[in-house]
Each structure stands twice: as structure tokens, then as C-alpha cells.
Design a protein around this nucleic acid. Structure first.
Lengths: 164, 164
DNA sequence: CAAAAACCTTTAATGCTTAGTGGTGTAAAT
DNA sequence: ATTTACACCACTAAGCATTAAAGGTTTTTG
């Protein structure tokens, strides 16, 4: 196993751990990580459009839309179509949403950061630099995606079902 | 914005970039990143159980199960219940699966690694060390998940639907 | 043997992406 | 000015990935 593979395995572990971490927190609040993240964004930025939220949290508009659907269903947020530019929709926290958010743990700070505080400052800096390096590298990733194979569309149903 | 937040933002970027990268490759092969990863694992390890695959690729058994369902549906892999231990199920590549795999790009090596080779060796080592540090930290994450709030279950349907 | 553990699958819910739709805004061309 | 073309914004649809929790066998343990 060479260096590259080690890096990739480590990356996988981080990603997985981050997800689990997010899930665990979500249980406490009844809200998932992305949900809290979006609510925090709405709170911090005030009257904010779906597109802006998507940019801030690095998610697609489609994802933000569906997450807002769920939050709106629980009456934690509400949407208002802009009168200035009728293409836009502004998201707001409801009273209930703001209240819950104020008491919810912050998945992107509270716990995660506590872990980081156990490290020396130079270690923190090193990790930061490294991660940014990786991120930049992957941003620059502009592979000319020449098609290689095509095994047809992926269908549902069927499959295993040994018991039948 | 403090150091911690920078780290988290960088982490998010890496995760997102990794996903995009994986998606892009998948398009070429008609296979997604996790699918290729699992097929590679089956090829490399030979007769391998679902649980072993899950360990190797750092995914839950449930996830591996559903991915294998799709692969099996396309006849790229097949499953055989072990006769030794009837709890176990072994996954195998079909001829077609092995063939396609041999011609598919490897999302965890080919391209990603090319990027890494642009770095100095000490940089590679630094990144590796950092990522492992983060991964270890998060593995050790054993938060006593005391419930904080409960806003009830998340329901579907309903919601926005302004147009109605 | 009975209880516990192990292994896989299923179910319900969430997240996430791409592609496509429809309404809205804007600017260029006639 | 009106039309035309294009860009923008949010939503919807289809498909894949994931997990936790629950269920069903089978094996191991006490």
C-alpha cells in the first residue's frame, strides 16, 4: 500500500466519521446536520434566498429545496416569494424554529471543535493547510471526461431475493 | 472565523470535491464510485463476504447489500450463500463484471493519485499524517449523547406548494 | 438446550446529484 | 417599443447512497 492509498483510506475515514458525527448530533436535536446548518445560515444571514443558502452551505439548490420542505413541514421555517424579483424565494425562521435552533447543539462547532482544542496550535495549522491543499487540488480537477464504457441504465427491483 | 471553522470548511470542500470526482468518473463507466470500489474489493479478495466488503470499504452492511442488489441486477456480480456457515453470503464477479471492471477507471487511484504526484513527498506525508490525525480523533469521538430537544418525527409531503 | 452473538436483509427516512420544467428578468436586435 | 433570445431561480423527478433500527437465520456459548 503506497502513500496515495493511505491518504485515500484516511480521507474515507474522515468522511465517514464526519457523517456519523453529524448523525449522532442530529438525534439529540431531532434535526440533522444539514438541517441545522441551513437553519443557522438563515438565522445568520437574515432574509436569504435559496440560492444563497446553497452557496453558503455548499449544496445544490435542489437539496436545499427538499431540506427546506421538511423544515417547513415542521414549521421551523417558512418561505416568502420576493416581490422585487419574483424568481426569488426568501427563507425565514419561525419563532419555533429560532427557539429550537438557539437550544440545539452546533454540529459544526460545539463538539467537533472540542476535539480540535486538544491539539497543539501548530498541529491545527498543519491540518488546516493540508486539508486546504487537498481541497484546492480537487477543485482544480478538471478531467476531460471521455466516456469509457456504458453498461446501460441502472434498474430497480429484482435481484437477490434468495428466499423466494 | 477561527481556525476550527476553517478546518471544517476545508473538510466540507474535500468531501464535496470527492463526491463530485466520484460522480464524474462514474459517468464514464456507467458505474458509481462505491460500486466500482466494491467490485474492486470483490476482485482483489476473491470469495468475500458482505461483512468483509463493508469493513474494507468502510460502509455499513446495509449499504453494501443495496449496492450489491443493483450490481447483481445488472449481472455484474452474483451471490452465493456459504455452505460452511449459512449465515454468510459470498459475492463474486460475473464474467461480464470482471470484464467491465478491468476496463473501468479506478476512482481511488488513477486520477486522484495523479493529483497527488504533483506534490512533494514531504507534503504527501504531511497530508497523510494530518488526515489520519483527524480520522483518529473522530473515531475516538464517543460523545455521551444526552438528548437535548425533540421536535417530533420528520414527515413527508405537504409543505411549500405555492402554486396550488 | 437456551441465550447471546453474528450475519445479512429489509424498512423508513434523509441526503444528494443531475436533468428537466416553468416562471421571471434582461438585454440585444429589429 | 416589441420581440426574441438567453440567463436566472426555484422546484420536481429519477436514481443512487446511507444509516439506524428491526427482523430472520444460523452459529456459538454458557
Amino acid at each position: 500500500m503506497n502513500n496515495y492509498e493511505h491518504v485515500l483510506v484516511a480521507l474515507r475515514r474522515v468522511i465517514r466519521a464526519t457523517d456519523l458525527h453529524s448523525k449522532r448530533l442530529s438525534k439529540n436535536a431531532g434535526l440533522t446536520g444539514p438541517q441545522l446548518l441551513i437553519m443557522r445560515t438563515i438565522r445568520d444571514l437574515g432574509e436569504v434566498t435559496i440560492g444563497t443558502i446553497a452557496d453558503k452551505v455548499s449544496l445544490s439548490q435542489a437539496t436545499v429545496t427538499t431540506i427546506l420542505d421538511r423544515l417547513e413541514h415542521r414549521q421551523l421555517v417558512y418561505r416568502v416569494r420576493s416581490t422585487q424579483d419574483k424568481r426569488k424565494v426568501h427563507a425565514h425562521l419561525t419563532e419555533s424554529g429560532a427557539d429550537i435552533l438557539s437550544r440545539a447543539p452546533n454540529p459544526l462547532q460545539e463538539d467537533f471543535i472540542k476535539k480540535f482544542q486538544n491539539l497543539h496550535e501548530w498541529e491545527q495549522n498543519m491540518i488546516l493547510a493540508s486539508l486546504q491543499r487537498v481541497a484546492n487540488m480537487m477543485d482544480a480537477d478538471d478531467i476531460d471526461a471521455s466516456p469509457v464504457l456504458d453498461v446501460g441504465p441502472m434498474l430497480k427491483d429484482d435481484g437477490w431475493k434468495e428466499k423466494a
